[in-house]
């Protein structure tokens, strides 16, 4: 049998072509172009740990400021309450400036 006839014989064993359903299933799973929301989502995911840490730090600082502020007021009131008449006059003069 010559090569050409041999090839012809083997080619009689045909394979099926992909069905439209298979084609559609494969194409449905293909990578999609990046959309704005997905890019933003990816960026958000990348920044989230840093943003969380910064927020926690800021909250700590604010809490500290509030605590120390109320402490100062308390000590000023106490000072005024405990002040004698002379001290009170001096304090009022200083406070009036």
């Amino acid at each position: 049998m010559d090569a050409e006839r041999w090839d012809q014989l083997l080619d009689a064993y045909r394979a099926p072509l992909p069905s439209p359903v298979l084609r559609a299933r494969v194409l449905a799973a293909a990578p999609r172009p990046p959309t704005w929301s997905r890019v933003a989502g990816r960026r958000m995911r990348a920044w989230a740990p840093g943003a969380g840490l910064a927020a926690a730090g800021l909250a700590g600082v604010l809490f500290g400021v509030v605590l120390s502020g109320s402490g100062l007021e308390t000590s000023a009131d106490t000072l005024l309450a405990e002040a004698g008449p002379y001290d009170e006059a001096v304090l009022n003069v200083d406070g009036g400036r």
Binding site: Y13, A15, P16, L17, P18, L22, R23, V26, L27, A30, P31, R32, P33, P34
Partner: peptide, 27 residues
Amino acid sequence: RAGRGDPTAAQALVARKLPRVLALAYR
């Protein structure tokens, strides 16, 4: 291009490769 989400490239790749892969698997 298909990896970057180009649908035309994905279609071309499917048209070019799916019949070949199917034929290999079938035989």
